[in-house]
Design a protein around this nucleic acid. Structure first.
Lengths: 234, 234
DNA sequence: CAGACCATCTGAACGCTGATCGGATTGGAG
DNA sequence: CTCCAATCCGATCAGCGTTCAGATGGTCTG
């Protein structure tokens, strides 16, 4: 970890680790590139061989952290039984929402960094090191679950277009309000309760809404514009 | 505006104005206290006679901006006819949500600053200059409208506790996603449409939800903890 | 009208920051 | 073994937030 020789060998990853630790200790912005470099045992200018700027480091860390969140959402949604089994069709989506909010509340500083401005779109030539099959973006997990819900009849197909947007907004909003301190929940158990309530309310509302006879320009992938050419290599 | 004499006279307000302009020009964090001071025509150290730190300036600006949003929400909700008149009981709340999101999208940098971490709670001894009857916090407007909706039968009283939380989360989430660039809407008309849909979905969902037989520790003012002793000084 | 008071503002300074650059160090390819 | 390109160092730059002793001048007291 500390330092082997003149050449570090894993500086990029080490810097990301140090930055993440600093974010956890001192807040999303309460740290400097110099500090992260020093912690790794390297001069501050060395960092510029791996990141074009401090902001590039932040963006890379944001990408990594969002990927971890996406993976955790996938796992958690897998842990929840499929909707065919039980009678509760919405269970899996509730799990997604609960996990999303809980993740943010458990690690507010990291979440603030992950949710910060600057969409993870943009430079597509950054994942030079194809460490792992690019992890799913949180929104992708949500999208897939909504499709599944429609499939099993838990949501009218007419309400599907843009539904990801509505659900995402509700869940993300709850997470953001809590993480930014605009709203507070005393009881830690209340977080899960609120997340569940928000997801259920939104899904119920989408199910019962007056069908929008028109107004959706494209199926649903044009509303959310993210890095193109994600999954399905080749 | 520029400078009268050695003593400025309105430095505090002038600094807030300059900071707001800089936020609009260069982003929520792309400016310095020195720059704001220079723009006003004052040395940077002069600012410290009116704000304890740069962060204090930011907090004050946040408070001011959130107050303006609150007032705008009040106005807009007044412009929408009362629910007794027409058949659409939710119209006023939809107006609140639409205005909230539109405000954020129209001025993303200012919104990012307003929504930023650091709740506007804390120092209650800052409004020394009682310029105007303290403007309503956006959440207060929402709260009042929800009460009104219950009154006219647009929402079951059982669903009321914590409903402000759910609606706020949905609307705030949509605004945040758009402002932070995590999601994008091409058509500017789509913003209003999405805001409406989110509010309606949540309200419908809250109306139809299985009544939570328990779980709400206090009416509703304990979940959101904000500056105490708001109106009615002394 | 004189004088003192004191909030306000200045200018220089401190330590820190992100960023750049020439030069030292090294692992690995030829 | 030699050379190259990647990597890292150390010094340096302008700019940042913040502090502090001192200049300034409106206002209140006599």
């Amino acid at each position: 970890m500390a330092r082997r020789n003149y050449h570090h060998g894993e500086l990029r990853a080490a810097l990301l680790d140090a930055a993440e630790a600093l974010v956890r200790e001192r807040g999303a912005d309460g740290w400097s590139l110099r500090e992260a470099s020093a912690r790794v045992g390297v001069s501050s200018s060395a960092a510029y061989h791996h990141f074009a700027s401090r902001d590039a480091l932040v963006r890379a860390l944001r990408r990594r952290v969002l990927g971890e969140l996406g993976e955790r959402l996938s796992q958690e949604v897998g842990r929840a039984a499929g909707p065919e089994a039980g009678g509760d069709l919405q269970r899996r989506l509730v799990a997604v929402g609960r996990t999303y909010v809980q993740w943010a509340v458990d690690d507010p500083s990291v979440a603030r960094l992950a949710f910060g401005a600057g969409a993870p779109a943009g430079d597509p030539a950054s994942d030079s090191t194809s460490d792992a099959a690019t992890p799913p973006h949180p929104h992708d997990v949500l999208d897939a679950e909504l499709d599944l819900l429609v499939e099993v009849g838990g949501l009218p197909a007419a309400a599907r277009p843009g539904a990801d947007f509505v659900v995402w907004a509700a869940v993300h909003g709850l997470a953001t309000l809590l993480v930014d301190g605009l709203a507070r929940l005393d009881d830690p158990r209340a977080v899960a309760r609120e997340a569940e309530r928000v997801v259920r309310a939104v899904l119920t509302g989408l199910t019962h809404e007056a069908v929008p006879s028109q107004g959706w320009p494209t199926p649903h992938s044009a509303h959310t514009e993210r890095r193109t050419g994600r999954g399905a290599g080749k």
